[in-house]
Write a protein that binds this DNA or RNA. Sequence first.
RNA 1: GCCGCCAUCGUCUAACGGUUAGGACGACUGAUUCUCAUUCAGUAAAUCGGAGUUCGAUUCUCCGUGGUGGUACCA
Length: 463
Amino acid sequence: MSQVRVRFAPSPTGFFHIGSARTALFNWLYARHTGGVFILRIEDTDKERNSEAFLNLIYESMAWLGLNWDEGPKVGPNGGGDFGPYRQSERGAVYKTYVDRLIANGRAYEKDGAIWFKLLGERFEVYDEHRKKTVTKVKVPPVVIEDMIRGRVERVEDEDFVIVRSDGNPVFHLVNVVDDIAMNVTHIIRGEDHLSNTSKHVHLYEGFGVKPPAFAHIPLILKQNGPGKMSKRDQGALIEEYQRRGYQPEALVNFLCLLGWNPGDDREKMPIAEVIRLFDLPGVNQSNARFDDKKLAHMNMAYLLELAPEKFTARARDFFARQAGNAVAAAALAADVEYFDAVMRLSQPKIKGVEELPAYTGYFFSEEFPVDAKVREKVMGKGDPQARLMELAEALPAMDFSSDPAIEEALKALATKNGLGFGDYQSVARLAVSGTNVGPSITGMFRVLGRARVLARLAKLAG
RNA sequence: GCCGCCAUCGUCUAACGGUUAGGACGACUGAUUCUCAUUCAGUAAAUCGGAGUUCGAUUCUCCGUGGUGGUACCA
């Protein structure tokens, strides 16, 4: 059995989106599962719509998701294999020789300045009501596709079709098939939207005298609101967006694995190595899946919680560094590294995404932090808050700040002494120190902020 | 219009032709916690409709309906 060779073939004509990412992921998973080769091929034959920026976005997004390719652009001098170049814009000569082959063996002809692929069979004219014109049909047996996910699919292709435009540019169907032949691709894993194209492709393989590779058409990702498949314009469609918002790439990948595939048991959150071990094409679902950003957010939080603290602080720092113009981010980055790390360690178990961080930690990095009016009203309207602030301020200088338990003990002792609860002091202290009623433990806040600043803020709130 | 694919809780999905149709997200209730979040316990929530095959159908077949994709000198 020869080595599996799969390819992901995006075209740099738009932002890299979630559907493309999953197609790439499933190809990558299959390659890694089988010990095969994962090829990245750039389908940039559409000169009008291509852009270098979109191309770079593909590279960056793939790298961010951890989908490394074995052959393709940016891999060594020859693209890591003997089948380059891996950008279709550089493969004109290859297409020409293949087209010449078809012309030579009578399977292609010129008409209206374009080159057409010729179907073999009885030809007849028929008026097409829908297209309002007479077309030439060809009587050919249905194409049979043995799809690894869908089983046997039959489809009739009954008209000749263009393979080279009159401007000399080859069309998608041609270059796609030629490259898959030339690059020895063994399995074509792509979106179900290509299933209808497959009959054309199978005819082309036959025209070239080559046995078609195995096909596996994976289900589509549907937009979460409204009808239709996810497209670049939809909310949450862009990979770049998740990167910008500080999502954990492992979480996004894990989530994507579960859209159309499952390990066969109840596990959902699982290391990618385990997915690689279990992934197989026949296990992929046949039905389209609707995108669910709530579940993705949950997955993201789960990954965030278990991230090693050093890794979390590193990712938090990276996120802050990308928040141009954000005052909190600027102050956070200017802060002492150990202090920054301490704040992040306090925040990690409490937040659902790193994008919450600037709002969540602002008061650690500046004395100018917003005070929630509602919370202030509520906390300051209960009992005698001024007295409690005073008592806290008096107790603070002698308090043991060496550890969270020590601080907690001191606060509890204070409460007991005055016949009140821990919560009564916690709430005013929290308001004074952070301006709100949500946040890390009060003891952690005290310890990290330090005695002096806590005292100053207590005084400030007391007026 | 024509052609293809698909069909289990709101969503993602399990279930050799025999299960009280399971899990997860979300929702709701409660417990835990210094706030919040987490965590934990619990509740509600599904086999698209109709024929057939079978002792027995979520599972197989057909029809319908719905969803989805294609139908270009786009990729």
